[in-house]
Nucleic acid binder design. Structure first.
Lengths: 351, 351
DNA sequence: CTGAAAGCGCTTACAG
DNA sequence: CTGAAAGCGCTTACAG
């Protein structure tokens, strides 16, 4: 553990310089230049002496001083709807890893999908002088993004995309299609969708991917069979209740754009005496760690959450380097499990 | 939105001073002194002019410059096992809220409960010059904590406690007792415990609270009825399998020190053809948002996760202010649901 | 190859 | 009540 920290007396460049009887600027040059440049920066002998002493004394440069001088903080701001959403928590793990690899540290804040908080948290981040922003809670009708662009704040979207801005997301349209392919192939012809929040591209794209694919097969989905809802368990439960009340005949399969909504729906189905996987197929989205371990294992479209986080960092890095970047959509895959594995039964089909 | 940010040209103290024809130090005094001191710092008239202009130009002080000068960063480091553990994610929301209220920003990092990573992340935090640390992943045998203390790094523990260090936790012993009270009162006499990781005080305290209370009632718990396990769903499943294999007669109730482990256990029980709530009672811990919404709603000891996070920040603030602090244990409550609500059946009792 | 100086934006004794 | 100076720890042209 190095010593230049909260507790102990910090070792500075000047300390090193004094100790070696050379000038601080020389020490800086040696320590700062990335190995390559170091050669021209100082004699090999001096460089070694400096490096050895720095290591021995546990020197670590003061990031505040460095930032003040270089005008770059190596700080990244990350804004998510809520970290207690497992999906965002995993993406953040990807971000943390990616950022550490590039020498950046990250702040995360929860906006709760509330526009006032989104703005406030963004301001807080900018007041901290982050070099750039990773925005995981973009709304499709967001005005904030346009402002940020106008002000030339470097940012990328993650998790949810908005056309015209750089983003790292799952290919959610494809994900919806995969779910449709699967349910159609199992013989289902009467399905419903728990569609999520209409302001989120994840919800809109997954729903559109599913519905369009379904129609391309010649299937039909009525208006009341697409229910917009919150992403959490309680939201899924309510949506499922609505579907059970409004749709007659009752659908034989449910596609929820989120695993947690799917779990809530499973609860509602059980309350109605229905057995998931037999009386009603259910497919979720994201393949969170829970899905496979549920009492009735849940089929789910697996999105590469960790990779999305990592990719967002790479993308932001490119933006910071002044490169032009295009949105990236990572491919999902389908995991079929007990909740939707079997073909529709003759009984259900005849209903 | 203020303008002093990543994108735009930043407004500095000097800008304000030039604009008003006064000295930067005067501006600093006015802006910095907390209303009280402001009175003595400058004339009311000047103060107003400065404040108005600062507001108009969207001045926000450069935190890096301030830190360099004051030697305080107003940065807090938070280390958790993993943010994808919902429990820690919620605690972090409490931290974020509490920290914002005190004017602090927070870094979070995942250590995955790996000692090497714990040390590395701690180093990274200290290299960033955080003012203090909130440690959510302490191991009972931790040597790092002693080092930090020696080096006078301000820190508090959260979530998991270690005797001799300040901490904000749930009263986990009480939580275990509540679960024991409940199951005993429902007539159970043969129980098993999914105990969690033995290096975590949460696991140890909850298990000890349960077992000791059980024995105080005159109950017995055999060695193989206490199974240490990971905290996640897969860990709970494995532990339940072990219990079902090793315990004869089969227990009629299961106490899992974590909701996710409980959910995994429910899956294992179902695989064995057992119905939770009828053939086997299950009680979890933390009352995460999922518990109430599961197909079979899960009884759970509710821990005040948000409050634990908030409390940790308050505690750390006191430490930073040089106050002496004592560990704080917040009280849990029990939420009884379908998974354990009914009294043990005569059939099971006779086994 | 190395030194000396200037300056990033702020705060804080010290004068007056 | 306000100004002027020093300095936090660093980097970076500029000399030599």
């Amino acid at each position: 553990m190095n010593d230049s920290t909260a507790g102990g007396r910090t070792v500075t460049l000047k300390d090193l310089a004094n100790e070696l009887g050379i000038h601080p600027s020389t020490v800086s040059r040696i320590l700062h230049s990335g190995t390559e440049v170091a050669r021209g920066a100082a004699s090999v002998a001096t460089a070694k002496r400096v490096r050895d002493l720095a290591h021995k004394l546990g020197y670590s440069p003061d990031p505040q001083a460095t930032s003040l001088r270089t005008r770059r903080t190596h700080l990244l701001g990350v804004i998510v709807p809520r970290l207690s959403d497992l999906v965002l928590a995993i993406m953040y793990e990807g971000i943390e890893e990616g950022a550490a690899g590039l020498g950046y540290s990250t702040f995360v804040m929860n906006s709760r999908d509330n526009p006032v908080e989104q703005r406030r948290k963004t301001d807080t981040m900018l007041a901290r002088r982050v070099d750039g922003l990773i925005i995981g809670d973009a709304h499709l009708d967001n005005v904030l993004l346009q402002e940020l662009r106008t002000r030339k704040v470097p940012f990328v979207l993650m998790n949810r995309r908005v056309p015209g801005h750089p983003s790292a997301t799952c290919d959610d349209v494809l994900g919806g299609q995969l779910a449709a392919d699967h349910l159609w192939s199992r013989g289902h012809r009467n399905v419903a969708v728990i569609a999520g929040e209409p302001y989120a591209s994840t919800a809109v794209d997954r729903t559109a991917g599913f519905v369009d694919q379904w129609k391309s097969f010649g299937g039909a989905i009525s208006q009341q069979a697409v229910v917009w809802s919150r992403f959490d368990t309680a939201g899924g439960r309510e949506a499922a209740e609505n579907i059970l009340n409004a749709c007659n005949p009752r659908p034989t399969a449910l596609f929820a754009v989120n695993d947690f909504a799917a779990i809530g729906a499973m609860g509602a189905l059980r309350s109605h005496g229905l057995t998931v996987g037999r009386d009603m197929a259910v497919v979720g989205f994201n393949d969170t760690s829970l899905a496979a371990e549920l009492p009735i294992p849940l089929s789910s479209v697996r999105s590469p959450m960790l990779d999305i986080g990592r990719t967002a960092v790479q993308l932001l890095k490119q933006v910071l380097d002044g490169e032009r970047v295009e949105p990236i959509r990572l491919k999902p895959t389908l995991c079929v499990r007990e909740s939707s594995a079997r073909a529709i039964s003759a009984t259900l089909l005849r209903q």
